[in-house]
Design a protein around this nucleic acid. Structure first.
Lengths: 147, 147
DNA sequence: CCTCGATCTGAGAACGATTCTCATTATAGG
DNA sequence: CCTATAATGAGAATCGTTCTCAGATCGAGG
């Protein structure tokens, strides 16, 4: 799943809604496509060395979220991070480090993910709630902070 | 696990850190103890009918989080909600409604929770990450928003 | 190519949630 | 009681985010 493949997919998804895939928007997708986990607006702005002004980064994130290209992720007070949606990056879960606050992605092996699905389905049956998606957040200490 | 039992436990936990369990703090614990899910500062202030000013609610939340009585929960842009920590309320998961943004708790039946534990343990073995806790976030539509 | 309308952008103002400040009040211990 | 310490209330300050608006860009039709 290369970055240029992301570009093709995003471009066509945006085209469907009559939205342009401009250089600024590409730049944001590039940054997120090569990130190790979700990033916030300020982090993205930083990684672009100011080539895209912060207010435009925010607008771009809103446009891409609206188009279903990005998914917001909340794990810290007052900070929204974004990552590529699952249809671009694949289904995965998060390891949230209680030491440094960072978030890493994990993709489960099929048998484990199948088990997760069964659990989520069971919960749907137990409650008046129609589940569309799920995410397992595991808190702990990453290799760097553990020791 | 009654509310008065919560009060006793919280009081003794706070005493350990030389922190007073004042009426305002009790009121916040009361509200959270009888909530159906995590609440934000404004929601708590609202449910107290202004008996505790908003700035005090914020301070109280910070104090109680610091003491390990409350756990913050993030599921919405720019809004931090809190709930009683697991040692007070028991382990549970969250149903996050993509319609109204609300969050409900679910406690899994033992066999399902046991399965979750196995999954989390397996992930710990797969990665350089020492898990201390986990939470399954299920996104979907609540009974009210579905239809 | 050139024009026109629609879309996008940049800069800064505005906003909402949260935190801070500081003067005042409550509390526990001597 | 008195005093030192902790807690409170009200409003100002802060920070992430959203909005506004004037100007730049684009792409379809002439």
């Amino acid at each position: 799943m290369s970055v240029s493949s992301h570009h093709r997919q995003v471009e066509s998804r945006l085209a469907d809604s009559g939205v342009r895939y401009t250089p600024g928007r590409r730049a944001v997708v590039d940054v997120l496509g090569s990130a190790e986990g979700p990033l916030g607006a300020a982090e993205i702005h930083e990684r672009l060395h100011g080539r895209v002004p912060l207010s435009s980064v925010y607008r771009t994130l809103a446009v891409l979220e609206e188009a279903g290209v990005l998914i917001p992720h909340f794990a810290q007070k007052g900070l929204t991070r974004y990552e590529l949606a699952e249809w671009l990056r694949g289904h995965h879960h998060h390891l949230v480090c209680i030491g440094c606050g960072g978030v890493e992605d994990v993709t489960l092996p099929d048998p484990l993910e199948a088990e997760m699905d069964r659990i989520v389905k069971s919960i749907g049956k137990l409650t008046e709630f129609s589940a569309t998606s799920h995410s397992l957040e595991i808190e702990g200490r990453c290799a760097r902070c553990d020791g």
